[in-house]
Structures are given as C-alpha cells and as structure tokens.
Design a protein around this nucleic acid. Structure first.
Lengths: 300, 300
DNA sequence: ACCCCAAAGGTAGTTTTCCTACTTTTTTCT
DNA sequence: AGAAAAAAGTAGGAAAACTACCTTTGGGGT
C-alpha cells in the first residue's frame, strides 16, 4: 500500500492524463474529449460521448475499463467526484482579461485543488513520526521566512494545543540564536516551500547538532529535508503564472493543524479539560465584548 | 439571481440536509439513507436504494426531483461531486478515538468544505467594492489579532501586488496610533472572524473618522461591519467541537489573495513588468542558495 | 361520525441506456 | 506477404431508469 490509503487517489482526471499515452488509438480519442470538457461529459450519455469522440459505444466501455472504471456509470461518478477538485485541469492562467467573478472562481479553485493534492500525497507515516516527536518535546521552535514565516507564527499560536512552550523567531539572527540553545528534548520545525532557504537549513543543522529533534515541512525533496529527522513533503501544484497566488501556505497551515491536533489528542484528560475551559472563557469574553480582549480565535 | 452565480451551490448533501424536514415521509426515509452513507449510495442502483430505504422506485425518483435533481442519474453525479468536499455532513467531531488517518481526513475535509462554503456565499459586489477602494488607496493598513493577525500580516506581505505601502500593526496601541494617522486617501482593513473584537472595531471607527476608507472582513454581520464602508462577509461553517481547528483563517487568506490579485490586475503594464522581474530574481536567488536570501515565496 | 378530496405512495409497464457476444478490420511479426 | 493477434465496430439483449396509472392514507368539512 502506498500513502494513498486515505482513498483519495480516485482523481480520475489525473489518472486519465497519466495513462493517456498508453491507451489504444480510439480510446485516446475518448480520453481527449473527456479531458477537454469533463463537465460536459458527466452530463452525457454513453451514446452521446461515443458520437462526440467519433467512436463506437463499446470502445467507450473499453476505455472505461482501461482507466480502471467498472463501466460507464462508474466513470460518470468518478469523473464527477474528480471534477469537484481536480478542476485543476481547467486552470487557465489568470490574466488581465478576467473579470472579478472569474478571478474569484480561479483563485478558490486553485487553492481547493491544491489542498486536495496535498492531502492525497501526504505520507501518513511521516506525519505519525512528526507527531511522535512533537508529543515528546519539552519545547518546540518553528522556523520560517516570508509566507512560511506566517505559517511558523500560526504554529506558534497553537501552543495551547501542543501543551508545550512554542516559539517562532522572526529574523535570521534570532533563529540562529534559538537553534543554538536547543537541546536533546527540544524539537525544531523548519518550514520552507522550496526547501532551499539557506538560513532555515542552517538553523535546523545547528539544532540537530545540539541534539534536538528536527522536522522539515517542504514542498519537495530538498536540502532542508536532508537534514531532518522527519522530512514531511507537502506537495504543491506547480504554478508558474504571473498572478497566481502562493497556494503552499494553505496546505502548510492545514498540516500544522493536523500536527497540533494530533499532539493535543495524545495528552491526558487534564489537558483536554484545560482546553475546554479556555475555549469556554474565550467565547465568554467575546460575548461580553470585553474591552481588554485581544482574542480572535487565537486558539485554533 | 443570488450570489451563487458561481455555480457552486450544487453542494447536494448540504441541500438535502437543509430540506430534509420539509420532505414527504417516504422521501425523508430516502434522505436518511443518502445522508447516512452517501459513499454507498453513489455505487447503488435506483432499485437498490429503493430497497435499502424501504420504499418504491418511483418514490426515489420523486425524492430526486424534490431536492432539485433531474433524475436518479443526475442525483448520482451531483452526489459524487458533493461528496468530494461537502463531506461536511459526515463531519463527526474529532475525538481521542480517531487514528491518525481519520484525523488527517477530517481536518482536510473540514477545511475544504469550509473554503467551498465561503466561496458559495461570497458576495461578488462587495468584493468589487473592496477592490475599487483598495486600488485607489495611497496606503493600506490591515488590523487583526490572533489568528486574524496572521491574516493581516499575510496581507501586508502582499504589498508588491497592491503596489501601495501596506502595514499590519501587531498590537492594540500601534493599531490605534496608526488608525489615528490615516487620512482621506488611505484605506484600513479590519479582519476579525467574530467581528466583535473591540480594538479592531475602535480602530476602524477612528480611521473612518479621519476620512480613510474602511473595509471589514468578518464571518458574520457584526459591529465591525457596521462601521465599514465595505463590509465583506466570509461565512464559516459552524464548529463547536473541542478539537476542530480554526478554519476561518484559510478562507480569509483566500479572500486576501483575491483582493491583492484583483488590485494588481488593475495596475498598468509597468507594474506587471516589475512583478515579473521581481519573481524572476527571487527564483534566481533561490537557485543560487544565496546565503543572504530571506525569501521564501514572500510575494504570493 | 362519515364522506370527500387531496396528497402520498405503490404497481406495472415503457423507454432509454448500458453492456456483451460476435464479426470485421487493422496491425504486427515471422 | 500471410497468418495471428489486437483493435474497433455491429447488433441484439439485459438492466436500469423513468412514466402513467391506480391504491391507500390522512385531513378537513358538513
């Protein structure tokens, strides 16, 4: 079994795209049509699709089985599900011609597809290892710059869930100093989408050299991950367009959510009670519009 | 036409859940079955579903039309698509009994459903108004605390896209001082999921009093939005469970993405060229593993 | 209390859709 | 070039989805 045990590998459009070149000639014609406008196809009947692709009906059936579907009915269902996120295939670049509605759709779609992709590619075993490490930590430090700095800060705010002091130094010097002071029972978490950011790699190496556990969150195999006890790859959909926003942040934030929640669940009943009480009081403060409140869902 | 013109309202499970109580008795039996295990249902045939629900086949058809589907075929497709994200209905609370796999699925699902919901409820006209205001700003300040503070900081980092100086004061005093110094051509953006955070409301009032344009991003109609030129409601799925993470951040971040991108698109060619150049050089720095680089996709 | 009317639900039959057995065409290898 | 195997098509049969019609149930009104 691979990491797709979550059952999310039924991204049919992806499968079709990958297998397209290995298909029979006529089947490929069908594949073209499906890929070109999956939205139309789910509404089509078998005969219509056959006509559209210029092939016979049994060919369409054969195409279905070739890409791993039970039959046409199954294809439709899988396709529909696939489309919900993997609208990625229809992701055209954002241009100045787009009106606001198109822009909204594109950006949401892009982020949704990306999250889905990240989920399907996430290695559960690696996450488990990270949770093990974090759960035993006496102190946790998160290292990240730029957009990843945002993620680090968010993680640090999740301190109540970790039940352990958390830090997120914001500049390279602080980061270096912090890393140097870590020791055996501490954990350092590096966050960098490229996995190449030099300071982060250095900081993790220093931390590791001092005996601290190290976790790396990156979008791809990279130098940073080579220096970590637990490398965590959070895949991102490639994106080279001018105006496409940074989608990696979101998946990184979700991974942080998962880690903090998983660690929290490992704690004992007392810890849970504290969180319950904290949440209740927070809600209370909000209800009162308490003027000294600086809280705004600071506790996940 | 309401704001669901994006065509994303086909969150069928949501629709069924909402209409369930208004359905005929037998139809409701069908609804129960569908809601209980939508995954099974997409694989079922009309007759099977009828048997499972203990009703006749035409009743199932009537159920289909009642909830707005063309027929059973259509139901299946819509259901399949709906399941991809709107697994929301199957969102059971996160408990200590969950294994890691379940946790990962739940947290991703929750965030995906939430983004989807936010998109379907987003008011395009309000977004347009916000973009108009931001595009004409001489300076933009983002106000947020806690999790929303993260969002504010992220927005501030998007400064290159806005093409306008951006700030995100991190404490209440700085925020107040900043608000007091804003004037007619400036814009203040308040971010608060509850929309009740007192300091933010105050800061926006001050900013507005000084003639600055004001935009509010909140999860619901609230005091903060009452004091804004442009109120922007970014709906969040309700969530009272102990361990469920804050999902609002993600949708707020996406809205910030939309706003910054939309503003950027309004700028002239020179601006676009600068961004292109900036991105290229950033990539170059990364490639070199330049030791002075503090960049990690800081430019959205 | 009874009857009537309307709405809900079921039965049976029709049509559409999907799939399979078999034939023809194309391709590939000796 | 010819034979065997793979690919594509034709036609017919099974099954699924839908519709027209009938029965039942339940809620007023006299």
């Amino acid at each position: 079994m691979d990491q797709t045990a979550t059952g999310l590998d039924d991204n049919l459009l992806e499968v079709i795209l990958r297998q397209k070149d290995d298909l029979r000639k006529s089947d490929r014609r069908v594949a073209e049509v499906v890929l070109a406008s999956p939205g139309e196809v789910v509404a089509m009947t078998l005969a219509q699709l056959a006509k559209e692709a210029g092939v016979s009906e049994p060919t369409v059936i054969r195409f279905c089985t070739a890409i791993g579907c039970e039959g046409y009915r199954d294809l439709r269902v899988k396709l529909a599900r696939s489309m919900a996120f993997a609208r990625s295939t229809s992701h055209t670049a954002i241009t100045s011609d787009d009106d606001l509605g198109a822009l909204i759709t594109k950006i949401f779609d892009y982020n949704l597809s990306n999250l889905n992709w990240a989920q399907s590619k996430l290695d559960e075993a690696a996450v488990r290892a990270a949770v093990d490490l974090l759960a035993g930590a006496r102190r946790i430090e998160f290292f990240g710059f730029g957009a990843s700095g945002i993620v680090a800060r968010d993680a640090q705010q999740k301190f109540p869930l970790f039940g352990t002091p958390c830090g997120a130094p914001s500049d390279a010097h602080q980061m270096y100093m912090t890393a140097e002071m870590l020791c055996a029972e501490d954990v350092a978490v590096g966050i960098s989408n490229t996995g190449h950011t030099r300071e982060i790699v250095d900081a993790l190496q220093v931390a590791r050299g001092n005996g601290a556990g190290t976790i790396g969150i990156a979008g791809q195999p990279s130098p940073m991950l080579d220096h970590c006890d637990v490398p965590l790859v959070v895949e991102t959909l490639e994106n080279t367009d001018l105006f496409t926003p940074t989608v990696s942040r979101l998946s990184h934030l979700v991974v942080i959510d998962i880690l903090s929640t998983a660690v929290s669940l490992r704690r004992d009943e007392t810890h849970h009670q504290r969180i319950t009480r904290m949440k209740a009081r927070l809600a209370q403060r909000r209800g009162k519009l308490n003027p000294t409140s600086t809280s705004d869902s600071s506790a996940g």
